[in-house]
């Protein structure tokens, strides 16, 4: 086994993701197979997670995938996948579409195609109430924690150039670091942070800084070079928006009856125009 061979294999592998697929149209494939394979994280409440009572996969992303499959007239099959594997899973054709906390950035859009925005995540900062921090700027120079891989740490670094950002394994670990004063603020999506604010013990309350750092548009991930499939998915989203189905799903997971009590404040629209 020579080192050159190994190196070449690695190079070759690194190219795999960028070779455009040459095959029949994916829309036809999905329709003829009768199944839409949807990849989702399974560990991201309330987007996709395992319900403890029924032990079934549920959530906002799960319902969106179901919606797309219904409108295509096919069954849906879910596949749980990790953050690290989600993009290769899609590009290697293990799944047809991914609904997995995919925030749009131009760099990311070089690897996968994004559907219209189906969710907009208000990225916010959460602090300990006793720290009396009320504005984003007050945090410049302080330590900020975020979940590794959940959202772009770069955005917070741009906004607060003197702060250090530490990425933790998950939201719970970041929360613990915040409560233990290892960090001064936790950065994340409004929905995610709200649950911590509500569940924090009374003797160490937390608060969100009112203004969002920025609003991250989320799209469904589709392989590049599948214009017809992408158009079909987009059309489904637009129609479901007009018919009120998207709002219905939103209210089911984020509305007044949920712990989040959020108002829908985004449109289904092309991401690139945002």
């Amino acid at each position: 086994m020579s080192y050159t061979f190994l190196f070449r294999s690695l190079m070759a592998l690194s190219l795999l993701g960028s070779i455009p697929a040459v095959h029949a149209d994916q829309l036809d494939d999905v329709k003829s197979s009768g199944v839409l394979n949807c990849g989702t994280l399974g560990t991201s409440q309330p987007f996709s997670f395992q319900d403890n009572d029924t032990r079934q996969l549920v959530g906002f992303d799960v319902d969106i995938c179901k919606l797309v499959a219904d409108k295509l007239g096919v069954d849906v099959r879910f596949k749980m996948m990790s953050v690290a594997a989600r993009v290769p899973e899609l590009n290697e054709k293990r799944v047809d579409i991914i609904a997995a906390n995919l925030g749009y950035t131009p760099a990311r859009a070089e690897q996968i195609a994004f559907s219209h925005q189906y969710f907009a995540s208000r990225q916010m900062l959460m602090v300990r109430q006793e720290s009396n921090i009320e504005s984003i700027e007050q945090l410049d120079g302080r330590r900020i924690g975020a979940v590794k891989g959940s959202s772009s740490e770069r955005d917070i670094k741009n906004r607060l150039p003197n702060s250090t950002v530490t990425g933790y394994a998950d939201g719970s670990a970041t929360y613990l670091a915040l409560q233990q004063k290892k960090i001064d603020a936790q950065y994340g999506s409004e929905a995610g942070l709200m649950r911590f604010v509500q569940q924090a013990p009374a003797n160490s309350p937390l608060a969100l800084i009112e203004t969002a750092v920025f609003v991250e548009p989320w799209g469904l991930g589709i392989r590049k070079n599948e214009p017809e499939f992408l158009a079909a998915v987009n059309q489904i989203l637009v129609e479901a928006d007009a018919s009120g189905e998207i709002t219905e799903i939103f209210d089911k997971w984020f509305g007044a009856d949920t712990p989040y009590a959020m108002q829908r404040a985004y449109e289904v629209e092309p991401i690139t125009s945002l």
């Binding site: 795999l16 993701g17 993009v87 990311r108 690897q111 996968i112 891989g149």
Partner: peptide, 8 residues
């Protein structure tokens, strides 16, 4: 990877 989605 998270910035670029260039996993491989």
């Amino acid at each position: 990877e998270n910035d670029t989605y260039r996993t491989f």
